[in-house]
């Protein structure tokens, strides 16, 4: 059982890291601010979520696990809204980059 959980942790965290990497590659490769925002919000939110999922079996108490999930949801909410706000600013202040 514990080996299975370890395996889960490894798979989930590795996948999370992969998506972080993807988000960053997108940030570097995509052509303008708006497309970069896509890369960051989508991939990084997912990456964080997977890391949280991977860490869940390792927390000491259910309460701590709940806290981790709370953190992720709050980051998700704030990230989604922040990206929209940045997108608005970028959209408004001209098509350049």
């Amino acid at each position: 059982m514990s080996q299975l959980l370890d395996l889960w942790s490894i798979v989930a965290v590795s996948a999370g890291v992969f998506f972080f990497l993807a988000g960053t590659v997108g940030l570097l490769r995509f052509p303008d601010t708006l497309t970069r925002l896509h890369a960051l919000t989508k991939a990084d939110n997912l990456g964080l979520g997977l890391v949280v999922l991977g860490l869940l079996p390792r927390v000491s108490s259910p309460l701590a696990g709940l806290k981790l999930v709370c953190v992720w949801l709050l980051v998700l909410l704030a990230g989604a809204i922040a990206s929209q706000l940045i997108a608005r600013t970028a959209h408004r202040s001209g098509p350049k980059a």
Binding site: L27, D32, A90
Partner: peptide, 16 residues
């Protein structure tokens, strides 16, 4: 990301 914020032309992108 650090190198990118230095290298990218657009300041808005750099600060994001």
């Amino acid at each position: 990301v650090a190198i990118w914020t230095i290298a990218v032309r657009d300041s808005f992108a750099a600060v994001v």
